[in-house]
Amino acid sequence: MTATGPATVPVTAALALGDDALVLSHRLGEWAGQAPVLEEEVALANIALDLLGQARFLLSMAGDEDELAYLREERAFRNLQLAEQPNGDFAHTIARQLYFSTYQQLLYAELAAGEGPFAPLAAKAVKEVTYHRDHAEQWTLRLGDGTETSHERMRRACEALWKFTGEMFQPVEGLDADWAGLDRRWQESVADVLGRATLPLPEGPRTGAWSAGAGRQGLHTEPFGRMLAEMQHLHRSHPGASW
């Protein structure tokens, strides 16, 4: 199941990880000029740039990065629905970051320890992602245990995104990971942060009624189509052009 050399890159897995990074990077890029404080402009852009770097590496493993990013239709994208969720307020962005970066850190740590084709990337990326998770944790603590308003906003954000967290642990073809173990550690880690942030652990289902494994199978949420329309429009308007 695990590919072992560059000649046998598991394309599905490269697209899954690459699309996650690309789409989330794009969403974070939408914050430019809109962040709550200048210092946070710099922090969010750093995270977006790390993710974009990962995306370019991963998509290049699967083919031409720009063709893959700009010329695929919505149904061909393999990213998690969590990654494509609109930014919402700062609390939603932080909740999305907490859920996603915790997942990414655990997964990349496991991939980095293995010998698969993603080990070199994972070894580099896990350092970046550790910082992303720390950033999300710091803000979760401050928003959760800040003012009444911030607590309420953060609680709602964590709950709203909870239904997208089950999808992360659906096995991905070509990725050799202990998915059940990752899920367990993810829940422990998130519960720990939310607890220290005086936030309740959301209840309720962790996947939608009809969409188990959805993003990985090319089923996305409505805002994603509009995001892609914006992202791809210029590139598609000039077929074959170089930039």
């Binding site: 690309l22 794009h26 890029g29 939408e30 430019a32 000029g33 962040a35 200048l38 402009e41 710099v42 852009a45 750093n46 977006a48 740039l49 974009l52 770097g53 995306a55 370019r56 998509l59 990065e65 720009d66 990013a69 700009y70 914006e230 992202m231 429009h233 210029l234 590139h235 000039h238 052009a241 930039w243």
Partner: peptide, 23 residues
């Protein structure tokens, strides 16, 4: 133009530039 940059390379450059301006 960050969300519409026509290549991933240009997108990264533009993001880094706008970030520098905040800095």
């Amino acid at each position: 133009w960050i969300t519409r940059a026509p290549s991933l390379r240009r997108k990264a450059i533009l993001m880094a530039k706008v970030q520098d301006e905040a800095g």
